[in-house]
Computed example of a mutant assay.
Amino acid sequence: MSTNFFGMKKSGSSGGLNAMVDDNFQYALGPPESGFSIFLAERTKKVHFIRHAEGYHNVATKETGNNDCLLRGSGPAHAHPLYDSRLTPKGIAQAENLRAYLAKRPSGSRSFTAFDLVVVSPLTRTCETALHIFGTPREPGKPAFLGLVDAPEGTPERAAGVKVAPPRFLVREECRERWGHYVCDGRRSIREISAEFPNFDFSELVHDDDVFYADERETDDHCCERAVKFLEWLNKRPEKCIAVVTHSSFLRHLFGQFGENLHNDDMDSLQRLAGNCELRSVVLCSHGNKDGKSIDPLMPPSSAPSTGKRLRKLSFFEWVQCQSGSTSEMKAKRP
């Protein structure tokens, strides 16, 4: 048994894979001593993880040099200006740049990366990122052949007049950011968010209000367990090429559980903190031991109740004080 950097024990059975030409897939599980990994194709699927683009909370932590500006203070979290933070103009440009890159990135028999499904965290910045990268999603319940649109500009498909189907956007709570403590990691009600993002499929969410957010940060162990359950859920999906628009700390807790037996450079590449709007592509392979396992809806752990709607709103003076925090103690990890 080996131990990852979260201190969690796991089996040492991972190895590198560089066998999918033009798709830049690098990571998989397998015996490390051979230098190769071989899997049955039917047990694999391509998953493209994308961290959200730059949000106003990212700018605030860079300007102040720490995360203190993300604390709710004496007011309720939802009243803080950075609660469920949105994308900056720079963030929107980052997402549009990734859209242009994906339009010309080969995948399978197409000249651009074609996705069967886009899974999105319910926070506003991930919904915005998904919309700017992938465009308007296909209406929930509509079959692909009834939702055909023009292919991306600059592709042979567009020049030939070939229509393509935009992917569905399915919102899942499991891939949201590590919750609690920082106001940027709470979300608005689904009633409010869904009105802003039509055609996103929110049907699999259980809670309208954010019952997960609290002053206490979600534990490392719980976030790691949640990340693995998300992989189990992905594995049960019928789609073979999936994009996941999510968050840096969630990805750190997910990827930090894999890769100890990879080449050092590959392990570092897999486990390092993701940048804004960074694309990290993997091959997910099921070993079959969890294929029949039922997956319950994500529920909040039995701990302190949500503080998202308590107490009074921050005064302007308190907000200015929050924004002018010390820059002398930069934290290594930012939300």
Results as ranks from 00 to 15, higher is better:
214 A>N: 13
267 M>E: 07
266 D>R: 13
201 D>N: 11
235 N>C: 10
255 F>T: 14
185 D>E: 14
189 S>E: 08
193 I>G: 00
175 C>E: 02
215 D>A: 13
282 V>L: 14
281 S>L: 07
237 R>H: 08
279 L>E: 08
207 H>D: 02
180 G>E: 02
191 R>H: 11
237 R>C: 13
213 Y>W: 15
274 A>Q: 12
222 H>P: 00
276 N>M: 08
268 D>K: 10
269 S>I: 02
228 V>N: 04
222 H>Y: 13
260 E>W: 03
212 F>T: 01
174 E>T: 06
235 N>I: 03
180 G>A: 11
198 P>M: 03
204 E>K: 12
174 E>H: 09
202 F>M: 01
269 S>W: 12
279 L>I: 06
239 E>L: 02
272 R>L: 04
227 A>M: 01
279 L>W: 10
261 N>K: 10
253 H>P: 03
271 Q>D: 06
282 V>N: 02
256 G>A: 10
217 R>H: 11
194 S>R: 09
223 C>M: 13
272 R>F: 06
178 R>G: 09
183 V>L: 07
197 F>T: 02
233 W>K: 03
175 C>I: 15
255 F>Q: 06
171 V>Q: 02
172 R>L: 13
207 H>A: 05
190 I>D: 03
213 Y>N: 02
276 N>H: 13
241 C>V: 14
206 V>W: 05
224 C>W: 03
272 R>P: 06
191 R>M: 09
205 L>N: 01
173 E>C: 08
175 C>S: 04
242 I>Y: 01
215 D>G: 15
208 D>W: 02
214 A>F: 07
178 R>K: 15
224 C>M: 06
230 F>P: 00
235 N>K: 02
229 K>I: 07
189 S>W: 03
227 A>Q: 02
189 S>L: 08
186 G>E: 04
270 L>A: 06
178 R>H: 07
189 S>R: 12
242 I>P: 01
243 A>L: 12
204 E>H: 11
265 D>H: 12
241 C>I: 09
223 C>T: 15
253 H>I: 06
196 E>H: 08
228 V>P: 00
191 R>Y: 06
274 A>T: 14
176 R>V: 05
220 D>E: 13
242 I>R: 00
184 C>S: 15
216 E>C: 11
274 A>H: 12
283 V>Q: 09
268 D>T: 08
183 V>S: 04
217 R>N: 12
264 N>K: 15
246 T>G: 05
188 R>F: 03
247 H>N: 12
213 Y>A: 03
179 W>H: 13
172 R>W: 14
251 L>K: 11
262 L>Q: 08
180 G>T: 04
